[in-house]
């Protein structure tokens, strides 16, 4: 198991390398000039030139990338070209809000999606199933930034129950969590349903029935654990996504998360900031994926056996 984890962590290194290269390259293509933004519209060409020289923007791409990677290996992520603050603390300053939103939305999603998905599967082709299918469909089809605005209109502008934006305590977390959570809810519910339907048809479920296991035991003891793998996969993937990229929800709720930070960085051609943040995000995503893989091993002994090979 430890070898498996180590192997995965080592495999992560070239991916991060690649992420850095691709992001750095795309950012380099971006036409904006940080020097203009830093110095302001009124600055003289000489002032701009000085800033460019100071930031090393005049060097060819390969030199700049090489320098960046060299610093990265020494543990220096560089600093934002605009704010002059190191990327690392900037990122971690935004992380709590992102984490809160990620946990909030996954809780909203899991609380409802799993019971509904199981219910839907065990009552296949009944009205319960139809209702769940419709909920799932709507949830999947709703643009969440629009849902966010609808929630603001209803619960904050009309009813005044929750703030319409900002990250300030539990109350402010509820609407964004629902906004992000609804899609997840729909997705996990649909996955739970199809996964359960798949498992319920397996021979070992008939074996369990033939043993005299009651309905509840069949569903929760025998079937559910076998159905968990695809559910965990989807949940993990989307947790990672919410952690590093829900730019739209963050925009709607003026949420001070990582997504907005990167977005602002992109629009202002802050290459260092964007590359650094995306590398960190990728690391988080990979760690979450690894955790998901480790959870697999606890759910399914066959997977555990594979890891030790």
């Amino acid at each position: 198991m430890w070898r498996f984890i180590l192997k995965r962590l080592i495999m992560l290194i070239p991916v991060l390398f690649g992420v850095a290269l691709i992001v750095y390259f795309i950012m380099d293509l971006t036409p904006g000039d940080p020097a203009v933004i830093i110095a302001g519209e009124d600055a003289t060409p000489e002032q701009r030139e000085a800033i460019r020289e100071e930031l090393g923007l005049n060097d060819p791409f390969i030199v700049r990338y090489g320098r960046y990677m060299f610093n990265l290996f020494r543990g220096d992520m560089g600093r934002s070209m605009l704010s002059k603050v190191d990327v690392f603390p900037t990122y971690f300053q935004k992380l709590p809000a992102s984490l809160a939103l990620a946990f909030g939305s996954i809780i909203v999603a899991l609380l409802l999606s799993i019971p509904l998905g199981v219910l839907s599967a065990t009552h296949q082709n009944t009205w319960v199933d139809t209702l769940c299918t419709i909920i799932g469909m709507l949830g999947m089809s709703m643009p969440n930034f629009w849902l966010g605005m609808m929630l603001i209109i209803a619960f904050s502008n009309k009813l005044g129950w929750f703030p319409s934006g900002g990250f300030d305590g539990l109350k402010s977390l509820i609407l964004p969590s629902i906004t992000e959570g609804v899609f997840l809810l729909a997705l996990i519910m649909r996955n739970t349903r199809s996964s359960m339907l798949d498992v319920i048809r397996q021979d070992y479920i008939v074996t369990a029935k033939a043993k005299g296991v009651n309905r509840r035991g069949i569903i929760w003891h025998h079937a559910f654990r076998n159905a968990l793998i695809p559910i965990i996969t989807v949940a993990g993937m989307n947790f990672a996504y919410v952690l590093c990229g829900p730019v739209l929800t963050e925009t709607v709720f003026s949420w001070p998360g990582v997504g907005r930070l990167v977005y602002d960085g992109i629009t202002k051609t802050d290459t260092q900031l964007v590359t650094g943040c995306l590398i960190l995000s990728c690391m988080f995503v990979s760690v979450i994926n690894l955790v998901v893989d480790i959870i697999y091993a606890f759910v399914d002994p066959r997977i555990k056996a594979q890891y030790s090979k």
Partner: peptide, 14 residues
């Protein structure tokens, strides 16, 4: 009690 045809799939893998 019943013994099933395919032992490969008759036991719960977890």
């Amino acid at each position: 009690a019943m013994i099933f045809q395919d032992p490969m799939t008759a036991l719960n893998p977890v």
